[in-house]
Design a protein around this nucleic acid. Structure first.
Length: 146
DNA sequence: GCCAACGTTGGC
DNA sequence: GCCAACGTTGGC
């Protein structure tokens, strides 16, 4: 799960402990959010910044939550086509789990994994939420703990 | 700041 | 339903 640290960083999550992952406005990313289960582990990725890469771990603690920013005319995530009775955007609540000592940089990820093993290294990929195969996930967790 | 990649919109 | 135009993402 990607976030620009200028907007919301892992330090913000560490401080708040939990947060609603709102503002996703891409159908494919939303569909991946819908597939998440309580207890799932997610990787926090800092994008569009000095130090791009995976910076830590989160846990999914609530699923299928309505993203209320879609109804808020003052929110940058307002969606005029969404209604209370027919909301378009659902998301998850995440909980801070772990911050890595050192970011696992995009370059390192590209060296270690193919696009099939890890979608985020695929050229042109712009999804902010994407699945990671179990085997890849285990390897990244090990890398993060070193 | 640039721009490739890609998603969305809307005219036809 | 096609596709040009436009907007956004995000690495560099």
């Amino acid at each position: 799960m990607k976030s620009e640290p200028k907007v919301y960083s892992i330090e913000d999550l560490q401080r708040e402990n939990t947060t609603l992952w709102d503002g996703v406005r891409n159908y494919q990313a939303r569909n991946y959010l819908k597939q998440m289960h309580i207890g799932d582990i997610a990787f926090f990725y800092h994008s569009n910044c000095q130090n791009i890469g995976i910076i830590g771990l989160m846990k999914i603690i609530e699923t299928n939550v309505i993203d209320r920013t879609q109804f808020d005319v003052n929110s940058p995530y307002f969606d005029i086509k969404a209604t209370i009775n027919n909301p378009r955007w659902h998301t998850v609540t995440v909980q801070f789990k772990e911050k890595f000592n050192k970011v696992i940089s995009l370059n390192t990820l590209k060296e270690q994994f193919t696009a099939e093993e890890l979608l985020v290294v695929k050229k042109g990929n712009r999804l902010s939420v994407m699945p990671i195969p179990e085997k890849t996930a285990q390897k990244i967790i090990l890398m993060g703990n070193h």
